[in-house]
Amino acid sequence: MLLFLAGKTLRLLTLLVAVTALSFLLLSYSPIDPVRAYVGADMLKVGPEQWARIAEHWGLDRPPLERFTRWSLAVLRGDLGISMIFRRPVLEVISERFLASLALMLTAWIFSGVFGFALGVIAGMRQGTWTDRLIKWFCLMLASTPSFWLGLLMLMVFAVWLGWFPVGLGVPAGVLAHEVTLADRLNHLILPALTLSIIGVASVALHTRQKLVDVLASNYVLFARAKGESGLRLFWRHGLRNIALPVITLKFASLSELFGGSVLAEQVFSYPGLGQAAVQAGLRGDVPLLLGIIIFSALFVFTGNLAAELLCNLIDPRLRLKGNSFEKL
């Protein structure tokens, strides 16, 4: 197990270094001038000399390699630089924004998991019937649905027509951050979380269904039926046991899609999360923030994959008890 973790850590390190270096390299060739991000709306008031001074202040006049060296040394000390658009340390922006995103993603992760699993089980147990076809059709349609469009529909129905939720902005306008109540936050969380959940249902349900269909076609289920088991009892004893792990693994291994979905959902619902920050950083050329978010998202995805593998190794007896067979009795 220790060896396994050490190997994983090493892999993470090489990937992170490569992601960072590659991103930095790419970003340094962007035609978008980072100084503009800093200057922002004051563009017209800033003369060429001032422009040059700002560039010098940020070290933007140095060659890319030197900038990279300086930047990575700082990163090693835990300093990701200052966000140009928020004018605050990148780490601070990320941690604050991530908490908001985490609430969103976690809600969606759990709901899509639970409902997707349930739908998949129903479809799989009734394979070939109209119920199954309907669920499959629904999921395949969902899989083709642009998530931001679904978000727009949600806004249209629940915010504009029914007026149940505010149309935009993560917190009510004109209210100071510390005055925002939990109820306010929840109110703004519901629609984006719902959108993300619905989008996430498709892959879980289809995956669960396929696994269950495979399990039900297996020899051991045939034998279980020969032993007189059927219906829910059979599902409980053999179905659930054999599909749970692959489905949970899938949930962990698909954090990448969840993150991508949250970027879009946050944009549609003006939810002040990490995804929205990434979009702003990209649009306005906030290189330090964008780099920070890239590194962070890679870590996030990696954690999910690692969790998936660890779970398999800990739970699946075929992996957990490898090499521990009858000879050792």
């Binding site: 892999r11 990937l15 490569a18 992601v19 590659l22 991103s23 790419l26 970003l27 060739y29 962007s30 035609p31 978008i32 990448s256 899609e257 993150f259 991508g260 970027v263 879009l264 995804g275 990434a278 979009v279 990209g282 050329g285 964008l290 978010i293 890239i294 998202s297 890679a298 996030f300 995805v301 990696f302």
Partner: peptide, 21 residues
């Protein structure tokens, strides 16, 4: 392959779109 799958697609898209302006 692992490297390109290490970052969420959408973040990678933002990065590349940014690089190309």
């Amino acid at each position: 392959v692992d490297l390109f799958l290490a970052v969420p697609h959408l973040v990678l898209l933002i990065l590349i779109a940014f690089v190309f302006g």
